[in-house]
C-alpha cells in the first residue's frame, strides 16, 4: 500500500505575492465607517440623555480628536507592519494642521470675512463665493503641503498620494473641528455631525487633489492642465458642500413647522465622500491598469 501524497496530483502551490504597502482604501473606509457609527450613536444617545451644557466643550473636543485617533490606529500604526511603510505621513498631518490654524482660519475668517457677506448671498453666489474663498484656500494649502513634504520622492505607487492626502485631511479637519467646538460650543449631537461633515468633505477634496498629484508623478506625459483642474474641482466640491449642507440642515422659512435637520447634512457629506471615492477609485484603478499594460509592453 502506498501512501497518498497530494503533491503528485495537485499543482504546486504558488507563493502568494505580498503587497508591500498598507492598503489605503480599506483604511479610509474603516475610518469613515467608524466616524459614521460614532456620529449616529451620539445622535441616538442624546435623544434619551440630556447632556448638561457645561459638558459641551470637553465632549466636543473629545469628538474632534476621534478622527486623529482613528487615523493613528488604522493608518499610521498599520504602516509599522508592512514591508514598505510611508514615512512622511505624520509630517504631512502635522504641517496640514499647522497650516489650517496659522493660515486657513485667519485668512478665511479675518481677512476674507466670509461670515459677514456670504451667508447673505443667494445660492449661486454662495457656491461661487465659498469655492473661491474656503474651497480655494483649503485645496491650495493641501496641495502645497503634500507637494513640498511628500511629492515626488515619497510617491512610490499611485495610492501613496491617497495616503498622504488622507493624512493631510485628518490634520486639517481636526483643527477646523477644534475651532468649531471651542468657538460655537455646539451640543454633542450637532458637534458629531459637523465633525464628520468637515472630515468627509476634506477627505473628498484631498482624494481629488491626490489624483492630480499622482498623475503628474507617474504619467510619463502628464497633461499640464490636469493638476490645476483637480485643484479647481476640489475647490468647487468644497464650495458646493457648505451651502448645500446648510440648505439641507437649516430650517426653511416657510409657513407651518420648520425644523433643523442635521442628519440631512450628514447624509450629504457621506454621499459626497462616497461618490468622490467611488469615482476616483475607478480612475486610480484605470491609471494603474494602464501603467501595468505599458510596463508589460515595454518588457
Amino acid at each position: 500500500m502506498t501512501a497518498f501524497d497530494s503533491r503528485f496530483i495537485t499543482p504546486p502551490k504558488e507563493e502568494e505575492e505580498i503587497y508591500p504597502y498598507r492598503r489605503v482604501w480599506s483604511s479610509i473606509i474603516a475610518e469613515s465607517g467608524v466616524m459614521v457609527a460614532v456620529a449616529i450613536i451620539i445622535f441616538l444617545v442624546t435623544r434619551f440623555v440630556e447632556v448638561p451644557r457645561r459638558f459641551y466643550p470637553p465632549i466636543g473636543v473629545a469628538i474632534s480628536l476621534i478622527p486623529v485617533g482613528l487615523w493613528i490606529g488604522l493608518s499610521w500604526w498599520r504602516e509599522r507592519f508592512v514591508p514598505q511603510p510611508r514615512t512622511k505621513l505624520v509630517s504631512v498631518a502635522i504641517i496640514s494642521a499647522l497650516a489650517a490654524n496659522a493660515i486657513a482660519i485667519p485668512l478665511v475668517e479675518d481677512f476674507l470675512q466670509v461670515d459677514k457677506w456670504l451667508p447673505l448671498e443667494n445660492a449661486i453666489n454662495r457656491i461661487i463665493g465659498y469655492t473661491f474663498t474656503q474651497g480655494l484656500v483649503q485645496s491650495i494649502l493641501t496641495y502645497l503641503v503634500v507637494r513640498y513634504v511628500a511629492w515626488p520622492d515619497n510617491f512610490r505607487v499611485r495610492l501613496d498620494s491617497i495616503a498622504y492626502g488622507a493624512a493631510s485631511a485628518v490634520g486639517y479637519a481636526t483643527i477646523l473641528n477644534l475651532h468649531l467646538v471651542l468657538s460655537s460650543n455646539p451640543s454633542p449631537d450637532i458637534a458629531a455631525f459637523r465633525i464628520f461633515d468637515a472630515l468627509a468633505v476634506q477627505l473628498a477634496v484631498n482624494i481629488i487633489i491626490a489624483y492630480g498629484l499622482s498623475e503628474v508623478r507617474f504619467n510619463a506625459r502628464p497633461f499640464p492642465v490636469l493638476l490645476v483642474a483637480t485643484i479647481a474641482l476640489a475647490s468647487f466640491v468644497s464650495g458646493l458642500a457648505l451651502p448645500l449642507r446648510s440648505g439641507l440642515t437649516n430650517a426653511a422659512l416657510e409657513q407651518g413647522i420648520g425644523s433643523v435637520s442635521p442628519i440631512r447634512g450628514f447624509l450629504l457629506s457621506a454621499a459626497i465622500l462616497a461618490g468622490v471615492s467611488f469615482i476616483f477609485a475607478f480612475l486610480f484603478d484605470n491609471a494603474e491598469r494602464q501603467d501595468a499594460e505599458t510596463a508589460a509592453q515595454s518588457e
Binding site: L136, I140, Y143, V216, R217, P222, P224, L226, L227, V228
Partner: peptide, 14 residues
Amino acid sequence: FRQRWSHYLVLIFG
C-alpha cells in the same frame, strides 16, 4: 517640462 508647468499652473490658479 510638463510636470513643472503643472505646478506653475496651480500657483497661477491660486
